[in-house]
Amino acid sequence: MEPKLGIRNVKSMIFKGVIIFFAFLITVPLIIVLLYIIKQGITQVNWSFLTHVPAPTGEKGGGIANALLGSFIMVMMASVVAVPVGILAGIYLSENPGTKLAYYSGLCVDILQGVPSIVVGIVVYFWVVKPLGGFSAIAGSIALAIMMLPIIIRSTEQTLKLLPDSLKEAALSLGVPYHRVIIKVIIPCGFAGILSGITLSIARIIGETAPLLFTALGNNFLTMKITGPMDSLPHVIFSYATSPYDDWHDLAWGASFILLMFVLTLNIVTKLLTRKWKIQL
């Protein structure tokens, strides 16, 4: 009995060691990637890098102002569409569980969440690019909005489902009509969750490249014309990274650094917002 117990304990210890080893090994590639991008990118970033468009081949200098502006415009347009639609759909799903429509739309959210981004790109190409006769920022935004939707819907739905029924009953018992209960009580109480869903979805789509390849394409010039092609941070990284020129690679490192900073900031902001707005129930 005694020696066997020893073996069993040793086995348990070894297992724990293996688990800890594997669990923490994963941070190694992450740290390598982050440090490498920061090291390569930070030297590229300066004021002129942020405010200039790319230089023609062979010339020194140039920046990513076009991509920054393009990413900003397209993410904004995508949010304007996806945020209200997503929140409303999320409210519908959490308030009407069990109905047929809710079941099928829930299914659609699941499907949408799993759709490969490249497929969204193809579809939006046929929905928008072909009818409008050319690549455009509008098409890019629609593709991004479709990618945002499931994240916003699910986070809204889950936040609202966590709110106790008693909250709704308290408002209803005061004679508050249903739509007002939603607007004045349910949404404010679930604000942190809904907001974090929005920031997370933006963090997710700001780095999406595949849906933009056949929709917004890219553009080497500073433009605000949303019916024409527009550049974006991820697209600029893709086209420069796969080019053969070293100074273009440098631009891509700089752009990667900026993109990474955006994503990191958005993630941190999400965490802080959630903490700040979290309501003690």
Partner: peptide, 23 residues
């Protein structure tokens, strides 16, 4: 560790690809 894992998911695919090419 949990934040690190979330960060891995947050880094855009294009950056992994770019890093992969050069490292």
């Amino acid at each position: 560790l949990k934040n690190a894992v979330e960060l891995i998911a947050a880094v855009p695919s294009i950056i992994y690809g770019f890093w992969g090419i050069f490292v």
